[in-house]
Design a protein around this nucleic acid. Structure first.
Lengths: 347, 347
DNA sequence: CTGTTAGCGCGTTCAG
DNA sequence: CTGAACGCGCTAACAG
């Protein structure tokens, strides 16, 4: 069946067939003004017969307000993002908005392009998840926010005037996690981070500060495994950590996300180390990945779904003209099976 | 900074400032007709000064052709989908199209609503991944395809006239997988499937046929664990399988996707069974999840990225007026660590 | 209750 | 090379 030649029905077609004006058609479609039942039925019949579907694009052009919002995400290979998007999509659809989705492939340059595309699509607002703000000229986002409401999710660092934020307090969260580990007697704690996200840096600061306080800080224990959200992060973390764990003999390893946590667990397994008996591993995010592996990962919950919901609320408020706001969520510890007391301190 | 009151600049504003007509502005923006350099510069200057961004929506309305395509997916909690979407998004963006994304939450009803929303958004075409065709009145998709080009990914079952398809030959793939297991000496093969996707049924047919041929078919060995793409699939599979594996003592378990495969592996672990020494576990998809766990899952590769790319090509062709096509990809075996020869047959 | 009309922002004839 | 005018599909006045 060839198609495309056949023009889709418009209000005019419906109006003709129902012997009414276009205004009446519009009124029955939108149900915002009274229409005599009998003419209403005629219009409905025509709509049905012609398979008429209103053109949202045209309506929005007329109304000068869009009902689609744009989302840009660094990657889909970390369940963390998938879960945030899941929350966003559900909330957006509930408000009868649509979602234009863009993936920046962990690349600041592509992030900028994605946002630009969204702006020219005339979206009502934009949500950027874990932006690479540090690698982007700061006035870029400022020029965006001057035109389109903007919400950042987990942008630990830079503040764009006029944008809204929904963040996790990753500084406090990582501190909580580290204190938990220390409370279990761990001193030799390996810190594992990635690149291209401010959240790693925030966590590293917590780590440095805490370890400094205790006098345990050792630069060797801070390891950067590079890209932290790609398909290869797990494998790469495992490969990188294997020799390091062997050499440094940490009793616990704190990872900046669950992907790295799983990688760390795999490294231990290869080394013949039992988790958590011989070494504890802690993740961050509480993505569904954390429950996939055995032993299930102890981790900090980032409430991805809430993150998404809140971002949409803030954005919708902003679209309605409210001023920008800042929501900070607290991360909670999720104790599972990958962390235990430090053996050496128990002896 | 409050915003929204300030109207964004349009062609008219630019034209005024540059002292030219709107037509000229349009010409320099689209670069499709010659414009004298000096006026061109004036226009460019005005565009810059006014922060003018073309309104794609208006342009498309005028041109009567959209450059956004819609995707609906059952869930994001299976990496399989995330990877297909990744492929789609990359390809779509490369052609300067945008992607409207909808998640049907594994619910046929929501799938219909998502597609409807896409149609009224006036998208140029729609891709539906793993549709629930069996649970949807067949004329729904027929009415959609009469209006909007449509491509299905992995819709093993029903054929909608006029739609394009990119499928994996899961019938042959599952057969290949099962024969591989049998070639390793396995007879007591547990078959694990889910609900709400035709692909499970296709695989079950392969299983039945093959087991029938060998005279090994036993209904008890076919288990349906319910929803196969949710956040709880892994856990639920593990819980369901644990008693069954104990009772039936299979030497291998074949799972319809990697999520279930991981669940099966976890069930074995809880039972104190070593994979693959005591029992083999095989997944399906070769999603990135398969490489996360230890031992890494042996599985059938569904080439998610290619699936996405091909779907976009087919859709774009369709949009240009080409007739519908059908691409079938072959699944290839990916041998990793979760499958071994059957012990009992080696004795 | 209903019809007529203007205009959303844009690109494209068609004349100059 | 440039401008005036039309229309994409729709809704919101404004009249009746």
């Amino acid at each position: 069946m060839r198609r495309g030649d056949r023009r889709n029905a418009t209000v005019v077609d419906v109006a003709e067939r129902a012997q009414v004006s276009v205004a009446t058609v519009s009124r029955v479609v939108n149900g915002n003004y009274a229409v005599r039942p009998s003419t209403r039925d005629r219009v409905l019949e025509a709509i049905d017969a012609l398979h008429y579907v209103p053109n949202v694009q045209a309506r929005e052009l007329n109304l000068r307000h869009s009902t689609t919002i744009g989302v840009v995400v660094p990657s889909l290979y970390n369940m963390f993002f998938a879960e945030v998007i899941d929350g966003i999509e559900a909330t957006v659809r509930q408000y009868h908005y649509s979602l234009i989705f863009n993936c920046a492939k962990n690349d600041p340059q592509q992030e900028v392009e994605c946002v630009r595309a969204l702006v020219s699509r005339n979206v009502a607002g934009i949500i950027v998840i874990s932006p690479n703000t540090a690698h982007i000229e700061s006035d870029f986002y400022e020029s965006v926010v001057a035109r389109t409401p903007l919400v950042f999710i987990n942008n630990g660092w830079q503040q764009i005037h006029g944008a809204s934020y929904v963040d996790n307090d990753e500084r406090a969260g990582s501190r909580k996690a580290l204190e938990y580990l220390m409370g279990l007697g761990h001193q030799r704690i390996l810190f594992v981070r990635g690149v291209n996200s401010d959240s790693y840096t925030v966590k590293e600061e917590s780590y440095r500060q805490l370890m400094q306080e205790k006098g345990w800080l050792d630069e060797q224990f801070i390891v950067n495994i590079g890209e932290g959200n790609s398909i290869d992060t797990v494998e790469h973390t495992a490969d990188t950590l294997q020799p390091i764990i062997k050499r440094l003999q940490p009793t616990a390893v704190f990872c900046c996300n669950d992907l790295m946590g799983i990688g760390a667990q795999n490294a231990c397994q290869r080394l013949g180390l039992r988790v958590p008996e011989d070494i504890s591993v802690m993740g961050y995010d509480n993505s569904s990945l954390a429950r996939l592996v055995e032993p299930k990962l102890t981790t900090m919950d980032q409430n991805m779904h809430q993150l998404g919901q809140n971002a949409v609320s803030l954005l919708l408020d902003s679209i309605k003209g409210a001023r920008s706001r800042h929501i900070t969520l607290q991360n909670t510890l999720v104790e599972r099976r990958s962390v235990a007391s430090c053996r050496k301190s128990e002896d």
